[in-house]
Amino acid sequence: MAEQVALSRTQVCGILREELFQGDAFHQSDTHIFIIMGASGDLAKKKIYPTIWWLFRDGLLPENTFIVGYARSRLTVADIRKQSEPFFKATPEEKLKLEDFFARNSYVAGQYDDAASYQRLNSHMNALHLGSQANRLFYLALPPTVYEAVTKNIHESCMSQIGWNRIIVEKPFGRDLQSSDRLSNHISSLFREDQIYRIDHYLGKEMVQNLMVLRFANRIFGPIWNRDNIACVILTFKEPFGTEGRGGYFDEFGIIRDVMQNHLLQMLCLVAMEKPASTNSDDVRDEKVKVLKCISEVQANNVVLGQYVGNPDGEGEATKGYLDDPTVPRGSTTATFAAVVLYVENERWDGVPFILRCGKALNERKAEVRLQFHDVAGDIFHQQCKRNELVIRVQPNEAVYTKMMTKKPGMFFNPEESELDLTYGNRYKNVKLPDAYERLILDVFCGSQMHFVRSDELREAWRIFTPLLHQIELEKPKPIPYIYGSRGPTEADELMKRVGFQYEGTYKWVNP
Rank of each mutant, 00 (worst) to 15 (best):
K152D: 07
S117N: 12
Q161C: 15
L203Q: 04
L211A: 03
E63S: 11
F241V: 07
L43A: 02
G59I: 01
R257W: 02
H155I: 05
L203M: 04
N210V: 04
I15C: 13
K205W: 03
S123L: 09
F34G: 05
I230T: 10
L214E: 04
A78G: 12
V233K: 02
F221P: 03
S106F: 11
T236V: 07
L20D: 14
R246N: 01
I234S: 10
I162H: 09
A39Q: 02
A116P: 10
S189E: 11
I230L: 07
L137R: 02
L96K: 07
F56G: 02
Y49L: 13
K152Y: 15
D176T: 05
R246S: 02
A141F: 03
F21A: 07
R192W: 13
V108I: 13
L20Q: 06
F66A: 05
L142W: 02
L75W: 14
R120C: 12
R219C: 04
F88A: 03
D42V: 01
D228N: 10
T10Q: 09
R81Q: 15
I36V: 09
V169G: 02
A149R: 15
T243R: 03
D113M: 12
K82F: 11
V150K: 00
R104G: 11
V233C: 07
D200C: 01
D114I: 13
Y147N: 06
H27A: 10
D113V: 06
R136G: 06
D42F: 03
Y249L: 01
I162V: 09
A90I: 07
L7E: 14
L75Q: 07
K97Y: 06
G247A: 05
Q119D: 13
G248D: 04
L183E: 01
L140V: 09
P143E: 01
T236I: 07
L121S: 01
H27P: 08
D30L: 09
S29L: 11
K46M: 03
L211Y: 01
L137G: 10
N218H: 03
L183S: 09
A109F: 08
F102P: 01
N105F: 05
M125D: 00
V146H: 07
F173T: 04
V169M: 11
L183A: 03
E93I: 12
R246D: 01
I255W: 03
Y197N: 03
L235W: 07
S73Q: 06
K97C: 08
P240F: 11
D100E: 14
I187K: 02
E93K: 07
R192I: 06
L235H: 03
N153K: 13
R136L: 06
S188D: 10
P92Y: 13
K45F: 07
T10S: 15
R9H: 11
I224Q: 14
Q83P: 05
Y139D: 05
A127S: 12
N153R: 13
H155V: 07
R104E: 02
I199W: 05
H129P: 11
A217D: 03
F216S: 00
F237M: 07
I67T: 09
Q119N: 09
G38Y: 01
A6D: 15
D79C: 06
S106W: 07
D176R: 03
N153I: 09
Q178L: 07
L75E: 08
A103H: 13
A141D: 01
H155Q: 15
I162D: 14
P144V: 00
L98E: 07
A217M: 09
D30S: 10
E206I: 15
R57I: 07
Y139G: 03
T51Q: 02
M159S: 10
L43K: 03
E63H: 11
D181E: 08
G14R: 15
A115K: 15
T31H: 06
Q133A: 06
Y197V: 02
K47W: 06
D200R: 02
I167A: 13
R215F: 01
Q178C: 13
N122W: 14
I220G: 06
C158R: 04
E148C: 07
S179Y: 04
V108N: 11
P86D: 06
V208G: 01
K46W: 02
L96Y: 09
R72P: 00
I255Y: 02
F191Q: 04
A134T: 11
T76S: 09
S180A: 08
I256P: 02
V5E: 10
I36Y: 01
N218R: 01
L235P: 01
Q209R: 04
T151G: 04
G41T: 00
Q28V: 15
H124N: 15
Q178F: 13
L43I: 03
P172V: 00
K238P: 02
Q28T: 09
P240K: 08
D42E: 03
D24R: 09
M37P: 13
I80M: 14
I230E: 01
K46N: 04
E94Q: 12
A127V: 12
G254C: 08
H124C: 07
E93W: 06
V77E: 13
S179M: 05
E19N: 15
E18G: 11
G131N: 06
P223H: 12
M212W: 02
F250H: 02
F101R: 01
E148Y: 06
Q28K: 12
A78I: 09
F21V: 05
C232W: 03
L214P: 00
A90C: 04
L128H: 15
F173L: 07
N135T: 08
L142F: 01
E206A: 04
A44T: 08
C232T: 07
A103K: 15
V108G: 02
I256Y: 03
H124A: 13
A149I: 15
A25P: 15
R192F: 05
L7C: 06
Y70C: 11
G38V: 00
P144W: 02
D176W: 04
H129M: 14
T31E: 15
P62H: 10
V169R: 00
A6S: 14
E63L: 14
A44P: 03
T76D: 15
A90V: 12
F221L: 14
M37A: 09
L142A: 06
N165S: 12
P144Q: 02
M37V: 12
F87L: 14
W164Q: 06
V150P: 04
W53V: 00
D181K: 06
S40F: 03
F241K: 04
V146G: 10
A109P: 10
T31Q: 04
E63R: 09
R257Q: 05
V169E: 03
S184W: 06
K205S: 03
I35N: 05
P143A: 10
H155L: 10
K205T: 00
I33G: 03
